[in-house]
């Protein structure tokens, strides 16, 4: 594997103080590599978005370090921070709220070009906007002059991807990029992310609660619960052979068309579920490497 572009090293984030403190991230470590995707999965409140926001430098960690190409970003100089911001781009969950309703799609794509790409000016900007839209499989003649409300959710998310690509990033952080899309267009967006990752050698941090899409997109997976990564490694190994009780619980909640909800054999008892949650929320220091590239915290 190539060297990590972006890495979190034992990063902790605590909100609030004393009794009301929320430990949103506890000793989180992971790294992103060129041409590979890491999926962070977990339920609402597990801390996955906190991780994404720390990777974006939107939150600063309470303790631990964020490393960009091996160098801590904490004390970086202004020009290094500018380079980091260019290099790490984000795709948001809500394709409706993440575009400005008062501006055309062309405007949305010109802005990052003007800000991050001093090498292109004047007519080249319009040519690059066309190129970006073609890259995400939108027709520039039709889409560029339109306003966000004239596009569908899937089209808007493609515009968001084009906008992220405009800065020529090395890492893309995608926080639930398909959870607000119709199922029939979701796969198109996932395929596009996969293609970008391979063709442009991007490192992708894919945050989701949908394990099936994580398997579709990501080579590596980290399962989070209560601010802790409880199990991680190769995606297929973790999903096919889940070891941590919380990973099993999460997998049991994935809808499976072969099993009906009213089938009593598939139903976990509420006290069992509570017990798993209680045990998984405790700090677990001991990590076991069950097989190469498959790690689990001991409960």
């Amino acid at each position: 594997m190539s060297d990590a572009i972006l890495a979190l090293d034992k990063v902790t984030k605590t909100f609030g103080h004393g009794d009301s403190a929320v430990h949103a991230a506890r000793a989180i470590s992971f790294s992103l590599h060129a041409g590979r995707a890491l999926a962070i999965v977990g339920e609402s409140g597990s801390g996955k978005t906190t991780c994404a926001r720390m990777a974006m430098r939107e939150y600063s960690p309470t303790s631990g370090q964020i490393l960009y190409k091996g160098r801590p970003v904490e004390n970086a100089k202004a020009d290094e921070i500018a380079r980091y911001r260019r290099s790490v781009q984000m795709i948001f969950q809500d394709p409706f709220a993440s575009l400005n309703p008062a501006h055309t799609i062309a405007h949305h794509l010109q802005r990052p070009l003007k800000l991050h790409r001093p090498d292109i000016r004047g007519k080249q900007i319009d040519a690059t906007v066309r190129e970006l839209l073609e890259r995400v499989k939108l027709d520039p003649d039709i889409v560029a002059p339109k306003y966000p409300h004239e596009l569908s959710g899937g089209q808007r998310q493609r515009v968001n991807i084009a906008r992220a690509l405009a800065a020529q990033p090395e890492v893309i952080v995608a926080d639930e990029p398909t959870s607000m899309l119709d199922v029939s267009v979701r796969l198109g967006v996932l395929n596009l992310l996969n293609e970008m990752k391979k063709e442009m050698n991007l490192g992708l941090l894919y945050i989701t609660h949908d394990i099936a899409t994580a398997r579709y997109v990501a080579e590596d997976i980290a399962v989070m619960y209560s601010g802790q990564i409880v199990e991680w490694g190769n995606t297929a190994k973790v999903i096919d052979n889940p070891l941590h009780p919380y990973t099993r619980l999460l997998l049991s909640a994935v809808p499976d068309p072969d099993v009906r909800f009213d089938d009593p054999r598939t139903r976990l008892q509420p006290q069992e579920v509570d017990d798993i949650r209680r045990r998984s929320a405790a700090t677990q220091e001991q990590v076991v490497e069950h097989e190469p590239d498959h790690f689990v915290r001991m409960v």
Partner: peptide, 14 residues
């Protein structure tokens, strides 16, 4: 086609 747009937990699509 609709079924083929659902990613499957077991890899690939339904």
């Amino acid at each position: 086609k609709l079924w083929a747009s659902f990613p499957s937990l077991h890899g690939g699509v339904l």
